[in-house]
């Protein structure tokens, strides 16, 4: 058993290495002076400097962040409302409505993305940032509803009754008791929504017109033309932002069902 435990732990470390080594290699090569990734390694932030004058990438970056922020606001608001309805009321069709949250998560994004392309064309929503935002919110909503719902499921309803017996009006109860207790779940859901949007490639790829893109779409185009350390640099920035958002999320919303 002792040997088995050691082997399992060693395996886990290997898995972590597998997950992180390519990312680290990519990040390191972004600081290498050679445009051909030639070794020996020579530290030079030249590619980061190059980014500052790459207007296409900067525009795409602004679009990505902007869409992610608007997406977060919309998805968190609408998702929290739906989660509240699911938690507070039992009604006909609730189970079906909850099941309907799975298709956006489970169907390959390729299919969803192309389907949006077809439908938006028919109802005359032009390809562009608005269409991309529509798609991102749709993909974020199920996550927000699930995350906020999980928080609501463990919400101690007796504290609201306690507040009422102590003389708090319904509004005082909501503001001073309900809202502060729900905040971690809502913030967690919001961070999820940000991450979903900021990292989304497939949907954006099909809905972005030539010239107006998001960061991942711009990078995809660049990769297909050929690799440059500039791509490493911008990719590293994206990874750092995503992981930063995720670490924040972890602070507000515990994964894994512990505690």
């Amino acid at each position: 058993m002792k040997l088995g435990s050691t082997l399992l732990t060693a395996h886990l470390w290997l898995v972590l290495a597998f997950l992180y080594v390519p990312i680290v290699v990519m990040a390191v090569l972004g600081f290498n002076a050679s445009p051909l990734y030639a070794l020996p390694f020579e530290f030079d932030p030249v590619w980061y400097r190059a980014l500052t004058s790459n207007t296409k990438l900067i525009d795409a970056g602004i679009h990505s962040v902007g869409i992610a922020i608007v997406n977060t606001i919309i998805a968190t608001t609408l998702g929290t409302m739906a989660a509240l309805a699911f938690a507070r009321y039992s009604f006909r069709g609730k189970t079906i409505m909850q099941l309907l949250l799975f298709p956006p998560i489970a169907i390959p994004w390729l299919v969803i993305g192309t389907a949006m392309l077809v439908f938006f064309f028919w109802i005359d929503i032009k390809r562009g940032l608005f269409a991309i935002l529509l798609g991102h919110v749709a993909l974020s909503l199920p996550y927000v509803i699930v995350v906020v719902g999980a928080r609501l499921a463990t919400f101690p309803h007796a504290v609201e009754e306690a507040a009422a017996t102590l003389g708090a009006t319904p509004w005082q109860t909501f503001r001073r008791v309900t809202a502060p207790l729900l905040a971690p779940g809502v913030i967690g859901g919001g961070l999820f929504a940000f991450a979903v949007s900021f990292d989304q490639f497939v949907i954006s790829y099909f809905l972005a017109p030539a010239g107006v893109t998001t960061l991942p779409v711009e990078i995809y185009g660049a990769i297909r033309k050929g690799f440059t350390p500039e791509i490493n640099a911008i990719s590293t920035i994206i990874i750092v932002v995503s992981m930063g958002v995720l670490l924040l999320t972890a602070r507000f919303y515990r994964f894994g069902g512990e505690r």
Binding site: P156, A158, V159, E161, A162, A163, A164, T165, G167, T173
Partner: peptide
């Protein structure tokens, strides 16, 4: 409830 001026202690205390 909030206007009845009662005090209530709950089963699991329901502390905030």
């Amino acid at each position: 409830v909030h206007a009845r001026n009662i005090g209530m202690m709950f089963q699991n205390y329901a502390l905030f």
